[in-house]
Write a protein that binds this DNA or RNA. Structure first.
Lengths: 198, 198
DNA sequence: GGGCCAACTTGACAGTGTCAAGTGAATTCT
DNA sequence: AGAATTCACTTGACACTGTCAAGTTGGCCC
């Protein structure tokens, strides 16, 4: 019972943190504000997380887990490498565009140093593995090196996501709700580029 | 004379800021630390910059200016669209890899809101224009839409830069000093992908 | 019933950004 | 020449932050 309550506050803190950064931005995140929102004293979070970085690391870990799950979900039932390639690309962009603050946090390595937070590192690796597998399939059919596909496909999709989230593409890509469609279009072009060579 | 001294402190503050974030990371930046390093009181910087965001905006503006200058410099003497394409790609990666903190700051739109800092916005636009021009040339020879080249080429190079800076590609791309060569290699592959279609 | 431990709370400290109010020298006005 | 103003700062305060240290309270075991 006590353990359940314990787990409860941990969960409440994580949920409050995510809600906070997604609503007010990452800069608005503070230990004390999270505690306030959870209705506990300013030191209560330290019972579950060693410090500020640790709670952020936990959020990052959950983010990569969810990204992995969604990627795997998007792959379900698809067997053709090209289709699978676009599927994870779209899943990646979907996640980024619908959880901007969470996504950004996952790539702020000064805030969460992965060598100090192995769980976050492991979750990131889990999501990475999905990409590597699909890139391998693509490499088979396209003749590109697997490493090349991983690096450049990830770079393109990640770059597109970040630039859109930072508002740097408002001139070239439609903003508003239809930006997801625009992003999808870009991924489909990447599929052509990488999957049917020659 | 007084005006010159005035300009001096402004310059000193900007230089101290840049040195600080490049040496200790963006998180280490604080108004008071900058003042300390410049040898002035903690409020002196407010004489030249309205607030924290304003000094960061000035740094961002200088960053985009330098990026534009380096891009134009890299283009000098090159006339073939494909060569020009790789040249600005390499210039972009060069800048990012050699000025990581500066580069990251330039794409942290929560820290520097461009609608509040038109000078930063204008400098960003200046760098963007260089890309747009080269993308236009590439579009002519490749048959892709100009908008497509802008978006996907920028995304790929920007994504590669950010992922490398965040240490997310250590498994797939060599780290250490030779990572610049690895990044160059990637850009050359992008040239093939975008410039000689079919 | 005493000790123990988990799950907190209360209090303090140095650091931060920034508002408000000086200060002293140079410049301008009369 | 002397007064007023302005410039380029300084000093002091405030609320906020992360985190160390020291309580407090309830339930459990022996």
């Amino acid at each position: 019972m006590a353990a359940q309550v314990a787990e409860n506050l941990r969960r409440v803190l994580l949920d409050a943190s995510l809600a906070l950064i997604e609503a007010e931005g990452l800069e608005a995140f503070s230990m004390r504000e999270v505690a306030r929102r959870a209705g506990v004293s300013h030191q209560a979070p330290y019972h579950y997380f060693e410090d500020r970085e640790a709670i952020l690391a936990a959020i990052v870990a959950e983010g990569f887990q969810e990204l992995r799950d969604r990627s795997l979900g998007a792959l379900e039932g698809l067997s053709e490498p090209a289709k699978r390639f676009t599927a994870i690309g779209k899943a990646y962009l979907d996640f980024a565009l619908h959880n901007p603050a969470h996504f950004k946090l996952m790539f702020r390595s000064e805030l969460v140093r992965e060598d100090k937070h192995r769980d976050a590192q492991a979750c990131a690796q889990g999501a990475y593995d999905v990409l590597v597998n699909v890139a391998d399939e693509v490499a088979q059919v396209s003749g590109y090196e697997q490493r090349t596909v991983v690096v450049l496909a990830w770079s393109a999709v990640h770059g597109l996501a970040t630039l859109m989230l930072e508002g740097k593409l408002t001139k070239a890509v439609s903003s508003g709700p239809e930006r997801v469609a625009a992003a999808y279009e870009a991924v489909e072009l990447l599929e052509k580029l990488w999957c049917d060579r020659g």
